[in-house]
Design a binder for these strands. Structure first.
Lengths: 358, 358
DNA sequence: TTGTATGCGTTATCAT
DNA sequence: ATGATAACGCATACAA
């Protein structure tokens, strides 16, 4: 559609003169151009670029010169076609705005640094069906690796991943038998630990407030329930959940709902920090003293938790590190290094603050 | 590396029997397989898949059947190589965790829907140099379009974009002469409007608190300064900025810094909502009455602003819509429809709340 | 509307 | 260590 400038065009002409007529040239120097200029075969250039140790120092120097002189850059599509392998890592997350996954994705990008590996990102919107569609789509590109969120893939997706022919990392959660590799932490234990802390702080009518209720939220709820039942304090009235996506406004609403069901509620374990912050504001508005009349505990421990008034207790999760680690595992596997263990538990850490210090 | 299952393998064998030996086959059905099964030429399959109207209904049906029967999926790399055009849109943002860009990226993905266009995302980390590197990298893929953030590219990047040979959309800001297309809003006007509102509310010693101070922050500051100078109330002591990335904790710190410089500060226009929220908590902690002793205005108007205690005034920005619109503009251009105007101002809206109602 | 011949830019394979 | 040749899977150019 658009033509290049004259200087670049000249290169094309000189190149095409030697091949009768080439109507389809893209206008960029190819590996053949570099080869000709360096006085070697194309395949030698290819080798020199991929693994310099395969080529003698002398030719390597000539080739490097030619590459710079022509401003040659390999065509990733041609490379992928010829080698049946794209320098691409497919990443599937359920949400791009949820800070949890935003942090994880940032970790992935940061660990990649200036590597030539590209990220192909897919947003599943928490839908296993959409996840399946995206896995198919990504697989058609023969990616170097796949990173997927969670362990609750559909049966079909799981089979696709098992026969993908590339490293696969499931992230965010722990699980018994990963498709391939796995890095995350236990949401069940996270929920249990938070709840036990509230119990130890002296709260008794501890509620659970949850939004979205995706598989990981469910496991945190299960951890909460386990702890409450162990203390013989579980009461279904204490659980307030919705499928609505999480937000601060929703936190306030859910607290109101929870109080309507259980007037004697004296603490809440919130599914995430946004809800917790919404709960805090609702308490401020209703003049409910935190932590005296109401304990509040969040999940993820975003920065804001420590500056709230009062500062809010939360479970710190290794979101960023999960991203980085997943890429490291992919790298190790691609370099043919054994990855052990294939299941990595990055843990979590309860950050106790004023909001639960009764 | 990995071999496919037997059933698929059978297909390979039958396919390869007719071509002597093929050691490089990837094991997946190709367009030739579909063509053979449908009793047509490969090019006809190619056409039927890209634009069904080019092929007779009869053949189309045969081809569709064959496609389903073989489970054929086109190879995007082969397609890109042959057509010199990848079904890929390159997107460059300065940050993935900044909710502003996360929302924009979400808009981009949502507008794309189930389209076969893939997103290639790059994180420039607010570095024009890194942006330049990524533009080069993306361009080597011959993307269908490029979406870049802001209008402050390096000269080299700008030239690369101008000769990219594909639609280019600059997003988030307004500007005189875009590379190609542009969608955003005026950060200068946003800053000016917020400041004028604070002035009208009766505040006089209005401070500006800013973090990161990227080009867009600079323009908001310029808007603030313009309004203050117009009111003959500008005072350098009222401006408190840092290059540190924005966060809630930082908001509190900056307020403390600002108060140290100007004890009579009676309001702050914050560069973004995180800072504003940090300021609010700091006020709560120091028992500074909001909005009586201190007015607070943020920027972006995230959900949390309306549930804070008191609710916080902010400038609502069309982040999500910018993402959607940018893709629409790309689509229109790719469909050869004229895009007019090529510069789209999506505006902003001041949301006045209790935090500035003195 | 459909088909033939060929090119896209690179790498796998085999040979030297 | 280096090279010649033939794929990789699809789309363009042109012919019929």
């Amino acid at each position: 559609m658009l033509r290049r400038g004259a200087s670049v065009g000249d290169d094309i002409v000189s190149r095409n003169q030697n091949r009768k007529v080439s109507r389809r040239s893209s206008g960029r120097p190819t590996i053949a151009d570099v080869a000709k200029l360096a006085g070697v075969a194309a395949i030698t250039v290819s080798r020199a670029l991929r693994d310099p140790s395969l080529v003698s120092a002398e030719l390597r120097a000539q080739i490097d010169t030619a590459v710079v002189q022509l401003g040659y850059a390999p065509d990733p599509n041609a490379r992928a076609l010829a080698s049946s392998r794209a320098d691409v890592i497919g990443v599937l997350v359920p949400s791009l705005t949820n800070i949890v996954f935003a942090d994880t994705v940032r970790g992935i990008y940061d660990e990649l640094g200036e590597s030539p590996l590209q990220i192909l990102m897919g947003n599943t919107h928490y839908s296993p069906r959409e996840e399946e569609r995206l896995v198919r789509m990504f697989l058609s590109q023969r990616p170097s690796a796949l990173i997927v969120s969670g362990v609750d893939q559909t049966e079909t997706t799981r089979k696709l991943l098992e026969t993908a022919g590339c490293p696969v990392v499931q992230i965010m959660e722990l699980g018994e038998d990963p498709v391939d590799m796995l890095v995350g932490f236990s949401h069940f234990e996270g929920g249990k630990t938070a709840t036990n802390h509230l119990l130890e702080a002296g709260y008794r009518r501890i509620g659970f407030i949850g939004a979205r209720m995706d598989p990981r939220s469910q496991r945190r709820l299960a951890g909460y329930r386990w702890a409450m039942e162990e203390a013989r304090l579980f009461d279904p009235k204490l659980v307030t959940t919705t499928l609505t996506p999480s937000s601060m406004p929703l936190g306030g609403q859910l607290l109101a709902d929870a109080l309507a069901k259980a007037h004697d509620l004296d603490a809440v374990f919130c599914n995430n920090d946004d809800l917790a912050m919404g709960v805090l504001f609702e308490c401020q508005r209703a003049a409910i003293a935190v932590p005296q009349r109401m304990g509040i505990c969040g999940f993820n421990d975003l920065d804001m938790m420590r500056v709230a008034h009062p500062p809010l207790t939360s479970v710190r999760t290794p979101r960023y590190d999960i991203g980085r680690r997943s890429v490291q595992m992919v790298r190790d596997r691609l370099a043919d290094r054994a990855v052990s263990p294939a299941i990595v538990d990055l843990g979590f850490e309860l950050q106790i603050r004023e909001s639960t210090m009764r």
